[in-house]
Structures are given as structure tokens and as C-alpha cells.
């Protein structure tokens, strides 16, 4: 039996293809289960330098440093990590430098873990309060065009931008319940 990946499974590969099209050379990340397939693709690519961070705010700084040196970079993280980035977002805002973020949502749709809800509920508000252009992808088909827009707006207009990939796309972690 052959299996053809449907759109629901395919969106991480579509993001990877977009990173290649946009000539992304550095990927900074704190892992999230929703990004695991994309992370594997990036790690397998010798033209992409993957840096695993101890905290997400390092990613804002790393993306800035890469841009100083002429390399395009993106930050991958979970919604809870957005809360760790708040003050560091003053760097791309004040320097007027691209800072694209691809965020997988928790605390968003059918969440099981109470601790994920406060930050998940505040992710978009917090990012926008810090000058980030935020677009949401709520279906698998939305993901690629939204990430493409996020990359274009970052590198064409020099500012932090984010795609939030909804928990409806990723599926809620149920802890066996």
C-alpha cells in the first residue's frame, strides 16, 4: 500500500521548502513537538545552520546577529516561548531589522494543560504590543501561504513578523485523556 502525504501531514515540508526559497541560512529554535518534522528537515540540510537555544529570547538576538552578517534567519518556537522574547523584541524594532518567527500554538484550541493557557491566550496580543506583524494559520492549507507572507514582510519591510500555527492544525496534546 502506498501512502501519499495529505496536506495535514505535509505542511512542515512546505515550510521547509519556503525556508529554502527565501534562502534562509540560520534557524534558531527551542523545540516544540509541532515543529519536530521541520526541525529534522533543517538538521539534515548542510546549508542551514541550526542553533538550539536555552531560551527563546536568545533567538531574537541570534537572528539579529545573522542579519548583521548578511544571513537570513528564522526563529522557531512554541507560543509559551513568545513570552520569553518580549524585551528582546526592542532589538529588531529599534534597529529596523527582519525577525521572522514561526510559532506553534499551545493553550489555543482544546488545550489540556492549564499552564499553557495564559501565554497561549496572550501570544498574539503580546507580539503585537511589541510591534510584530502577526498572521494566524488555522488550517493546514493556510500554513504555507501565511509563512510565506511572514517571511516576505520581515525581509521586505525590516521588522519582526510572526505566523502563529493554530492548535487545530497541530492537534492538542491529550496526555492520554
Amino acid at each position: 500500500m502506498t501512502t501519499v502525504p495529505d496536506a495535514a501531514e505535509d505542511w512542515p515540508d512546505q515550510i521547509y521548502d519556503l525556508l529554502k526559497q527565501h534562502e534562509i541560512r540560520q534557524v534558531a529554535l527551542v523545540p516544540d513537538a509541532g515543529h519536530s518534522r521541520l526541525i529534522k528537515r533543517c538538521l539534515a540540510d548542510n546549508d542551514i545552520k541550526v542553533t538550539t537555544l536555552t531560551t527563546e529570547e536568545e533567538g531574537i538576538a541570534l537572528v539579529f546577529g545573522a542579519w548583521l552578517g548578511g544571513e537570513k534567519a528564522v526563529l522557531l518556537m512554541q507560543s509559551s516561548g513568545v513570552g520569553n522574547c518580549i524585551n528582546m523584541l526592542s532589538v529588531p524594532v529599534s534597529h529596523r531589522t527582519p525577525c521572522p518567527m514561526i510559532v506553534t500554538m499551545r493553550g489555543d484550541y482544546g488545550e489540556f494543560n492549564p499552564f499553557q493557557v495564559p501565554m497561549g491566550n496572550a501570544t498574539q496580543t503580546v507580539l503585537e504590543a511589541m510591534g510584530t506583524l502577526v498572521k494566524r494559520a488555522e488550517t493546514p492549507e493556510d500554513v504555507a501561504p501565511t509563512v510565506d507572507a511572514t517571511l516576505r514582510m520581515a525581509f521586505n519591510t525590516y521588522r519582526p513578523t510572526a505566523t502563529l500555527i493554530g492548535q487545530r492544525v497541530i492537534g492538542a496534546k491529550t496526555f492520554g485523556k
Partner: peptide, 10 residues
């Protein structure tokens, strides 16, 4: 870490 991003790029 800004230094790291710059050092990796250059």
C-alpha cells in the same frame, strides 16, 4: 548570542 549569529554568518 548576537555575536554568535554574526560569527556564524561571517
Amino acid at each position: 548570542v548576537m555575536g554568535l549569529g554574526l560569527a556564524l554568518a561571517q
